[in-house]
């Protein structure tokens, strides 16, 4: 992983999550804005996947468990897709809240991925 990129990713996911929560609790259905924010989060995860695949060839290898890292990464990649489908099927304000919950969960997962990449497993 590239650390600065990871922190940007965490920040974007947190912001997208808060945005969706606020917009959702104020009663809005999923919109281009909220779905777009989550789409950006997903895009960054795809980039992270590419980085994770390429990085070991440049000498930037994971210190922790690679299997665990990819379990998190793939779980995280699935979340926006699941939440996005939910948002398209169920047009209610709660779907917007759900988009926010998914984005915040991704922020935590990316943070955890950074930990796994840089520290030895206990």
């Amino acid at each position: 992983m590239i650390e600065p990129f990871t922190w940007i990713q965490v920040a974007v996911a947190v912001l997208a999550g808060l945005l969706c929560l606020i917009v959702g609790f104020s009663g809005r259905k999923p919109s281009d804005l909220t779905l777009g924010a989550v789409a950006v989060v997903e895009l960054l995860l795809v980039i992270q996947l590419v980085v994770a695949i390429v990085a070991p060839f440049t000498g930037n290898t994971a210190v922790g468990s690679v299997l665990e890292f990819y379990t998190y990464l793939i779980s995280a990649l699935l979340l926006p897709i699941a939440a996005g489908f939910w948002a398209l099927v169920d047009r209610s304000k709660w779907s917007t809240v759900i988009l926010g919950v998914a984005a915040l969960a991704i922020a935590v997962m990316v943070y955890r991925m950074q930990q796994i990449w840089t520290t030895l497993p206990q």
């Binding site: 979340l79 809240v97 998914a102």
Partner: peptide, 14 residues
């Protein structure tokens, strides 16, 4: 309740 379900789902996934 939908949010509850989703949080449960994420926890199940984790």
């Amino acid at each position: 309740g939908r949010v509850l379900v989703v949080v449960y789902g994420i926890l199940a996934l984790g």
